[in-house]
Simulated assay, not measured.
Amino acid sequence: MTSSIIRIAARITKCRPITACSRHHQYSTENKARYYTKKHEWVAVNGDIGTVGISQYAQEALGEVVFVQLPDVGKEVSAGEECGALESVKAASEIFSPISGTVTEKNDKAESTPSLINKSCYEDGWLFRLKLVGTEELKKLMDQTAYDKYLQESH
């Protein structure tokens, strides 16, 4: 009897992560690799769609974000190109696309409620999505480990 309970408990434990993951939006950046720029933007790739945002470091450095201007759907952007702006109570900052592509969606919620960026810069506070031209440019970006090292060395 005890061994049956243990086996059932083990099966339930194994199922929980799958159930929790299935509730996440298909573009969720949780548990996906993010690639970073030296200007603190990130991109998480799902197929040929990249979701772009700013890093935890960037949103903390900016302070309370009060205004967001994002690129329009259909706009073609190149890696490193300025494509939007953020303003906070402390400063203003441009948004640079970490990768080339065509904007397929912008986060209207972040534009209407800029504080989302401070509350959840990797999930609810993402900025825009784009259809990637290709994935070669990802090689020029930093993975999480390289970005953490970059922050330690340069800030």
Rank of each mutant, 00 (worst) to 15 (best):
S3I: 11
S4Y: 05
I5T: 12
I5F: 10
I6K: 13
I6W: 01
I8Y: 12
I8E: 13
A9S: 13
A10Q: 12
I12C: 07
T13M: 09
T13A: 14
T13P: 00
I18Q: 11
T19Y: 13
A20G: 00
C21E: 15
C21Q: 14
C21L: 15
S22K: 13
R23E: 12
R23L: 14
H24S: 09
H24T: 08
H24I: 05
H25T: 04
H25E: 11
Q26C: 02
Y27F: 15
T29N: 11
N31R: 10
N31S: 11
N31K: 11
A33F: 00
R34W: 05
R34S: 08
Y35A: 02
Y35Q: 00
Y36Q: 07
Y36H: 14
K39W: 10
E41M: 06
W42K: 01
V43R: 01
A44G: 12
N46W: 00
I49R: 06
I49Q: 04
G50H: 04
V52K: 07
V52T: 10
I54D: 05
I54P: 04
S55D: 07
Q56L: 10
Q56T: 11
Y57E: 06
A58P: 03
Q59Y: 00
Q59P: 07
Q59C: 05
Q59I: 01
E60I: 06
E60D: 15
A61Y: 02
L62I: 10
L62P: 01
G63I: 05
V65I: 15
Q69H: 12
Q69S: 14
L70P: 06
L70D: 05
D72V: 09
V73Q: 14
G74Y: 06
E76N: 11
V77S: 09
V77T: 02
E81Q: 15
E82C: 13
C83P: 08
G84R: 10
L86A: 02
V89F: 01
V89A: 14
K90S: 06
A91Y: 11
A92G: 13
S93L: 01
E94S: 15
S97L: 07
S100V: 09
T104S: 14
E105L: 12
E105Q: 13
K106L: 13
N107R: 08
K109I: 07
A110E: 08
S112L: 09
T113K: 14
L116Y: 14
L116W: 09
I117C: 04
N118W: 02
N118G: 06
K119E: 15
S120Y: 02
Y122L: 13
D124F: 01
D124M: 09
W126V: 09
W126C: 03
W126G: 03
L127A: 01
F128P: 01
K131N: 11
L132C: 05
G134T: 02
G134F: 00
G134C: 08
T135C: 01
E136W: 00
E137K: 02
L138W: 09
L141F: 02
M142I: 09
M142D: 05
D143F: 02
D143C: 04
Q144N: 02
Q144K: 15
T145W: 01
T145Y: 00
A146L: 03
A146M: 02
A146E: 15
K149F: 01
Y150E: 00
L151A: 00
L151M: 08
Q152K: 13
E153K: 12
S154R: 10
